[in-house]
Every structure is written in C-alpha cells, then in structure tokens.
Design a binder for these strands. Structure first.
Lengths: 235, 235
DNA sequence: CGCCCTATTTGCGCTGGCGCAAAGACAACG
DNA sequence: CGTTGTCTTTGCGCCAGCGCAAATAGGGCG
C-alpha cells in the first residue's frame, strides 16, 4: 500500500530527500518480511542490503568469541538498519534479529550507490546519523563503566519509553516484547538483577510489570533514580 | 620543519589526498602547542578546530553529570582528533587533554570546509574513520558488559601496545605517561584493581611495572588472559 | 644529595550483583 | 480447559571488585 511510501518520509535518513528521489527509492525497494526469531543478517557478513522497518521490532546484538552477547540497539518502525554498513561498503558489525513478525523495505547495495550518485546528500545524512549513534554509545559506555545497575536499568527504561512508549491513561506503556534477559543485555547486568529491580519498583508503585512489557507510572521518580545519587550533601 | 609535512602523509584522514591538496592543508594549518595538563577543548563546546597530533600524547575523556569520567581514546602522534566533529559541524562529544607537552597542527573549521569542497573524498574518509571508531567502541562496550576486570585490563594493555608500543629487547614497552587511574578509566575498573592486577602479573613474570609505564614481557600469555576462560571443557 | 610531592602498592572489610535452583505465572495451543 | 513450554520471580550463598587508609617508592627539583 502507498501508506508505506508516506512512511518513508518519516525515516530520518530520507527526510532531506526531494520527493522525486524518494519516489526513486520507493520504486527500487523490495518488500521483505521476517518471522519472529529470524535474522535479517549476522555480524561480519558483507553488507549487501539496507533496510527500513515498517512494522514490528528488531534487535541488534553483538556477540563476542564465547562471550555473552550484548544488545546494542532496538529498531523501531520507520527507522533504518544496516544502512550505514551498506553505504560505507563494509561488513555488518551487528546481528539483526526480528523480535516480532516484521515488515520491511529493503534495498540492494548497488541500487543505493546508484541513487547516492545522484543525491550525494544521502551519504552526508548517513554520516550524521552514524555520528549521532556513535555519541549515544559513548554515553552508554560511560554509564556502564561508572554507574550502578539500578541507574542503568532506569535509564534503559527511559530511553525505551522515549523511543517507543505508548501513552496510556495510567502512564507510559513499553510494549516491545522485550524479555528480562533482553533488558539485561542492554544494561550489562543479569536477568536476575533486572527482575529483582523491576519487582522492587513495582512494590514502590513506580511501575507495573507484565510479561515482555512495562507500564511506567511515575516517570519523574524514574528520572531521579537514573541520575547519580546527587552530589555529596556537602559536609 | 618540513618533517611535519611528511608526517601529514601518515595521517589516515589524509592518505587518500593528492599531494597538491596535502600542500593546501599544510599551508592553511596553524601550529598549536599545549603544555601537559592543558585542554585542547572540552566536551559540548562547538567544534571549531580539528587537530593532528605531531608529538606528545592526548587523552580524550567523557564526563557524566557528577559521575566519574571515562577514558574513551588515547591519541598517538600522526592521528587526528576533533576532526569528525569539525567536519560534521557539531559539538565535541569528548574533552581532549594533553597528557604530555604536545605539538599539533590545527585547522579552523571554515578552512577545512573550503578544502572539502574541492576534495569531497576528505569527507568520505572522515566518514569511514568515524564508522571504524564506532565499531571499536561497540566491541569495548561488549567487553565491559560481559568480561571480567582482568580480561579488560589485559585487552587494554594489548591495544596500547599495538597502538604505541616500543619494541625493546626485553619486550614491548608502553610508555604513555598513563597512570593507574587512567588505565582504570579505560577499563571501567578502579585504580586499586588495576594496581593489584598488574602487580600480580609482575609476580608471574608477565610484565614489568614502572611509574606511568609498563614493559610487556610475555605477550602471548597476555592474549590468553584477555580471551574468555575458554569454552567449557565439554562434558 | 636529600627533600617533597605524587604515584603506587597492599591489607582489610564490605557489599553489589551474580547465578543456581526451585517455585510461580502466563500465553499459546490442541 | 487442561497441558506444556517459556518467562519471571525470589531465596540463598558466594565472590569479584571497590574503596579507605596507611605504608612505600620513585622522580624531579633545588
């Protein structure tokens, strides 16, 4: 449906593009569906495709040799993934897995390159997006290195709520089919610590837990928890 | 001295540049010196300059609100810093501090932009450098989230030795004026843990410690330590 | 050569967070 | 509407790593 075309406008990578170019993109796109649990690509594979998520959720993870994996990024609808890799022509650094059933639009690298030749600003925008994500990761790195598990979990919830929260009368609903384990991989903690922490917060009336979802009742309080324990009360 | 010009060739950002362009860069550069402990720039300042380090050492750190800082990157001679920020025209995400007395070449943003207009590949190269650093940080993020302090410290030493190690007859010397505290900020541990770990390794004959320096005797052993405790002995 | 300042080491006690294991809660499916 | 598999919670014990405090060791400078 042409609703998809309209959604392309919302993709940050494309916002600067003139309509003719967007039409060109749309025409050369290939719809790709993926069942929950399936993989768009794996890390270290050559980046031959870029994707825009229309519907569903994708998680991007990094595995180490024999080490547990970490969750670097959650992709929400109208976001691109694999684009930076395809544009610079490298390997995918991460693995992209469908968390739920997904609808996407996909482009082959050579088609993108052709379009970029006509609209170089596309590469420019990709650069800026990459830099922005880079900086977000730097911040998360600092948090991981210096803050407590509780703070990191609070921050993760806030980010998720910001990225994909659904406003409800009782609060902000995060319904991302994210297990406790996923949250642990985002925050560099363990499944158990996440569970205990969320349970505690539920007892405090801060939020309401569900399987794979969280309803945030008191956002302000959560922000307080995410913030360092306040500068020393000076004495 | 024109030795500086020759060194520009070694800067990854410039390797693809034709000699005429390199000459142009050199001519519009301004030499900047900095004493140990002084700052080239602070995070969140507008990026008005980019630098190439000729001599000395620079460390780039990220501070959190009231949180301890982390050390994201060590800059060795013939590396650029602040370049990505200046080229995309954003703020500096990090603070750059001279660890030792430093000699650099510096460019104003507007001059860079002018040269980029003539040699767009410069922006392209900057893009690729940014992506590369992004990926290195992703790896470090995974390590920080999933590996032990000992492993992370071993890895940090290996990286440093790789980046700026001086081969000696007795082993690889890392002489970067890096304190135990700096190592701790690189690895997300504490000064005490770094000290204890290095002392232990010295007792094991793995390396030799000095003030602000480390001499690696047994690199292979260090690699073993950096690698996960080997897959379960299968049973 | 000796003093002083700063970096480093190390003993000690403490605790945040891990991870097993078992019990409990959901959702899906037949 | 019960069964089954998966996700989640929680009690419990444990230990890696933190951080204070005090001792020690260099290096640089007068």
């Amino acid at each position: 449906m042409s609703n998809d075309f309209r959604n392309l406008r919302k993709v940050k990578l494309f916002t600067e593009l003139p309509t003719t170019a967007l039409q060109l993109m749309y025409d050369s796109a290939r719809p790709v569906q993926m069942e929950a649990g399936c993989f768009f690509f794996h890390q270290n594979e050559r980046a031959e495709m870029m994707y825009v998520l229309l519907d569903g959720q994708v998680k991007m993870t990094l595995l180490g040799p024999e080490g547990r994996q970490v969750l670097i990024r959650i992709v929400a609808p109208c976001e691109d993934f694999g684009a930076v890799s395809a544009i610079v022509g490298s390997d995918y650094p991460l693995t992209a897995e469908a968390v739920t059933r997904c609808r996407t639009l996909a482009w082959e690298q050579k088609d993108i390159m052709r379009i970029i030749d006509s609209y170089p600003m596309l590469r420019e925008t990709a650069f800026q997006i990459a830099v922005k994500r880079f900086r977000q990761l730097q911040k998360r790195f600092r948090e991981l290195a210096t803050e407590s598990a509780e703070q990191r979990i609070a921050r993760a919830l806030l980010r998720l709520s910001n990225q994909a929260g659904l406003p409800k009368t009782e609060g902000m609903l995060i319904d991302l089919a994210l297990s406790r384990g996923d949250l642990a991989e985002m925050t560099g903690t363990s499944l158990y610590t996440v569970s205990r922490t969320l349970s505690q917060w539920e007892r405090d009336g801060l939020l309401k837990n569900g399987r794979g979802k969280v309803l945030i009742r008191d956002c302000a309080q959560l922000i307080t928890l995410a913030t360092p324990p306040e500068n020393p009360p000076f004495n």
